[in-house]
Each structure stands twice: as structure tokens, then as C-alpha cells.
Write a protein that binds this DNA or RNA. Structure first.
Length: 267
DNA sequence: AGTTCCACCCGCACGC
DNA sequence: TGCGTGCGGGTGGAAC
């Protein structure tokens, strides 16, 4: 379910319980999620220690001893908890990582879209990702230049992880609204100024999401508060907070898309 | 001849 | 019962 801010929230919550811990064993109840294979994870992971826990795009990245890296992608419905081994097990837990202190890292994923990767070369998993939108080295000029090399429609481009990493459906819609750009327009039709507005809108919304511990829009992930600050996402038919025109909902690139037809004119 | 774009689709649960 | 929907993204064929 998470986008960048929600994944970041998981990373921060898990750092305390996970840093310095050593994996003891792995229990796999749904092998299809594991890459390269369930057998390989069970063979290689025991004895490896968590040295760093970070995020790259929407991946959680566990830097392990012996140069190994564990990636977890939560996709639409995944979540992670650290619980005592004796705590009741939820039926949607797909992978259980036993730790050296009697606790377990539990990967729960109702829809089974998530992925677990254990690799020696991180680039095999995240090498295709575009820049981090909140990286201070990634400037507005970089963003505009990147846009100038593309020809597609705006929103599908923002959702393309090889164009920019970590942006999903909510933050794309909210950022297009904040920058007053129609999500279906071709990116080449926007001025440098418009794209610079979008760059700042993305940073502002992603940072707000992180501050509020992400958005909780269903029962799978709770605790975040960003859903209370949506301007357009999920608000089809309701008045635009700026001009009171009803928010439109369309399908774009296969995803529901929300915008104000007056604040975000097409052409 | 690549490269880019876009619809489709992958389990599952929930609400109308 | 049935259908539409979903905080993602890989795939493959179509279109530049």
C-alpha cells in the first residue's frame, strides 16, 4: 500500500527493533513472493546481521553483514511488524524472519503482490530506479531536464519508477493539483516554470506525508494522518478546496486520477 | 531497430 | 451473487 512516505515511516519504525539483530531462520508460508527463491533465502539469511536499514524508492533496504542486501517491497497491501514469536499470527503473514532475541520480523501481505529479495548486488533490484525526489542533490533543474527528455502524459510519467523513485497514486495526484497541472497533458507542453512548481509540490507533499507518518486509507496500514490533508485524492465529485468546482475522477494509465478541471486546465 | 508507451493483469477483501 | 475498486509495477504488444 505504501508510497515513499509510508515506506519511510516503516523504515523509521523498524530501525530500533532491527538494527544489530541477526537473522536466525525464515518461515515461508507463500514462497512465490521470494526472489531469487525461498530455498536460497532460507539457506543464505541465517547468521546475517542487520547493519543498516534504509529506503530506496518504495523498497526497504536492509544492509546485512557479508555484503548481502535484503529488499522488501510492500506493493499494494504489505506491512511489516516486529513481534514476539509467541504473539498470535495474522492469517496474511507470508514470511516470518526469526531474530536472535526471540522476536520476529513479520511480512504481512493480503494481496500477495509484495516481494522479498536477497542479493549480493543491490543494483540487481534497485538499479533501474530514477532519482530520489527528496535527495538534496536532485535539483529543480535536474527535474526539468529529465522531463524534457520525455514525451508521455504527466501522471503516468510521475508513476514511472525509473523516471523518479517513490511517487505513487496519491502523491502524484496531490502534487499535480498543488502545481495546477492537468495530469493528462503531455509533459512537453508545460513551461519550465510549471515543471519547477511540480518539483516543489512533490517535495512538499512527500515531506508532509513523512511528517504525518503517511496516509492511512484502509485497514491495512494505520497510524498515518496524511489522508486528512488530501485536496483531491479520493474526492471525486466533492468541491475543489480552492475554487469549489467539483473534483473530477478519471482513469489514466490504468489508475484512478483526481483533479480540479478548473485549477488544472487541459491545454 | 530500438525505445517508449499503454492496457492488461496478478490475489484478495470490501462495499454497493 | 456480482461487479467495481485498490497507496504497485512487470509484461508484452503497439506505437513512435
Amino acid at each position: 500500500m505504501p508510497e515513499l512516505p509510508e515506506v519511510e515511516t516503516f523504515v523509521r519504525a523498524l530501525q530500533g527493533p532491527m538494527l544489530g539483530r541477526t537473522f536466525v531462520s525464515v518461515i515461508i508460508t507463500w514462497p512465490n513472493l521470494i526472489r531469487p527463491s525461498a530455498a536460497e533465502l532460507q539457506k543464505k539469511l541465517p547468521g546475517l546481521r542487520v547493519e543498516r536499514l534504509t529506503r530506496r524508492g518504495k523498497y526497504l533496504q536492509f544492509r546485512l553483514s557479508e555484503g548481502q542486501t535484503l529488499f522488501i517491497h510492500l506493493k499494494m497491501s504489505g506491512s511489516l511488524t516486529v513481534e514476539p514469536a509467541e504473539a498470535p499470527l495474522h492469517r496474511h503473514v507470508r514470511t516470518i524472519f526469526n531474530l536472535d532475541n526471540g522476536y520476529q520480523l513479520r511480512f504481512k501481505d493480503m494481496r500477495k503482490f509484495g516481494r522479498v529479495h536477497l542479493v549480493d548486488d543491490p543494483a540487481r533490484v534497485t538499479g533501474h530506479l530514477g532519482p530520489e525526489p527528496l535527495d538534496p542533490h536532485f535539483t529543480a533543474e535536474d527535474f526539468v531536464a529529465r522531463c524534457r527528455r520525455r514525451s508521455g502524459r504527466l501522471k503516468p510519467l510521475l508513476l514511472n519508477q525509473s523516471f523518479i523513485a517513490g511517487v505513487g497514486n496519491i502523491y502524484a495526484d496531490e502534487s499535480c493539483f498543488a502545481a495546477r497541472l492537468h495530469p493528462r497533458r503531455r509533459v512537453g507542453t508545460f513551461s519550465d516554470e510549471a515543471l519547477t512548481r511540480l518539483y516543489h509540490a512533490l517535495q512538499k507533499n512527500l515531506n508532509a506525508g513523512i511528517m504525518l507518518k503517511g496516509a492511512s486509507i484502509d485497514a491495512v496500514y494505520g497510524g498515518g494522518q496524511f489522508q486528512n490533508h488530501f485536496q483531491v485524492y479520493g474526492r471525486g465529485g466533492q468541491p475543489c478546496p480552492v475554487c469549489a468546482t467539483p473534483i473530477k475522477r478519471i482513469v489514466l494509465g490504468g489508475r484512478s486520477t483526481h483533479f480540479c478541471p478548473r485549477c488544472q486546465p487541459e491545454e
